[in-house]
Design a binder for these strands. Sequence first.
DNA 1: GAGTGGTCTAGACCACATG
DNA 2: ATGTGGTCTAGACCACTCC
Lengths: 251, 251
Amino acid sequence: MARALFQNIYRDIQSGIERGLYSYQSMLLSESELCARYGCSRSTVRRALSELALNGYVQPIQGKGVRIIWRPQTDDRGAPDNLESFAERARHQGFESTVYVRSFERITVDERLSQATGFSPGTPIFVINRVKSADGIPVSIETSHLLATEAPALTPRDVEGSLYAYLESQGVAITTGKRTITIEAPNDDDQMIFGIDGPQAVGVIRGHFFDSQGIMFEYSEIRQKPDFFTIHETCTRTMMPHGTAPVSSRH
Amino acid sequence: MARALFQNIYRDIQSGIERGLYSYQSMLLSESELCARYGCSRSTVRRALSELALNGYVQPIQGKGVRIIWRPQTDDRGAPDNLESFAERARHQGFESTVYVRSFERITVDERLSQATGFSPGTPIFVINRVKSADGIPVSIETSHLLATEAPALTPRDVEGSLYAYLESQGVAITTGKRTITIEAPNDDDQMIFGIDGPQAVGVIRGHFFDSQGIMFEYSEIRQKPDFFTIHETCTRTMMPHGTAPVSSRH
DNA sequence: GAGTGGTCTAGACCACATG
DNA sequence: ATGTGGTCTAGACCACTCC
């Protein structure tokens, strides 16, 4: 089992919901009942509940109780793990995924690349271009810019599987990611790989990823075939208002 | 000021980061220092910090401290409020937004619509179709299915502005949203409104929204012109392992 | 009034990082 | 050894809902 107590409680309630033990729109046990059930303090129960709320499983209502807002039809496979890798995602959807490494080089960030990636000029990085296929059909083209110091011994062979799996095996834990999703016209690469009769647009996900030390170790650009482009999101309105702060934007 | 103490602390630290008082990659004051500074207990400070981490401002590192991972260039307008409306979003980006109501009707959910929307058959709903423009250019077509009991007196005029603003004025608070984002071929409506020479694909966001009572009150489908389709996401790997099941984000 | 969730406190012990 | 964040407790008070 997971180490922390609140994690066990989370898992227990989560599986209860997904298994239909608690049904959509019904009320969960109250916090005090859960305390009794798990033999722990209220804070611990609340910690579990707040994560469940964050992931769209439940919604607490003051003075009333905690309502289940998850249902199997709509939320099929539960809350998405926002940072799951391509391989994980493909596996979840029942596809056989393969990876082809198109290029693999080690370079130093120059001024121009610095702008695009967010790495400081002079930083040594790996630039890796890969095509990922599901059941033999190319579905995404991924260019990763990877901090060289994070995986000094990286070889092309290492990235034939899951890059993240390799990194985690090296003790690198991906902790935070910031992504931007857009729709763009296909470029030459896209047309060549996805096919000329293929899509008239591609989904592009650009992301900055941080490790457990708060160091940005990857900038990646994923160009994805539309039919295989799906993103699930759960959002909660937090208690943080944001109207007052002045806003700047570039778009 | 906001009511809760942790909110004030959040805002204070947030603005400190956005104002450059704390710089990218530097360490924040330690939790105990923050306790002293704000004259409160550690839990309260931690509550604020955990929300900051969730929104990609900060990353705590055990045994070391809390590192700032936000920078103005990349994260321009701060953490997205994940549930902000079109009007808010457009305003944030400096566009003049307008809304044109194409159709407005009140119907009862049938079996087929129930599948698509998630409302139970027999439920009375409003179906509202609107085109939203930024600086006069149509950028999105939005079809909302709205629980009639949630806003019994709704008129076409009410939805000429922000639907959410109206709902909030009626005491309805949008609390949780579950969205799916895909890229699809334009349909006839899209081609007519966005123009034939326009995009070869549109971004589609389908969402289920819940109010503060945990009642699903809206199903919406937003079809968006690619050039105006941008989504920002911040994800954090929570402590919830997911061998069997998944985990969180948030924004 | 009784029960619910929302906020907060003061203190404890642990795991981890750094000297 | 000291300081840091991670987890947890026991208890308090508040705001809200429902009877």
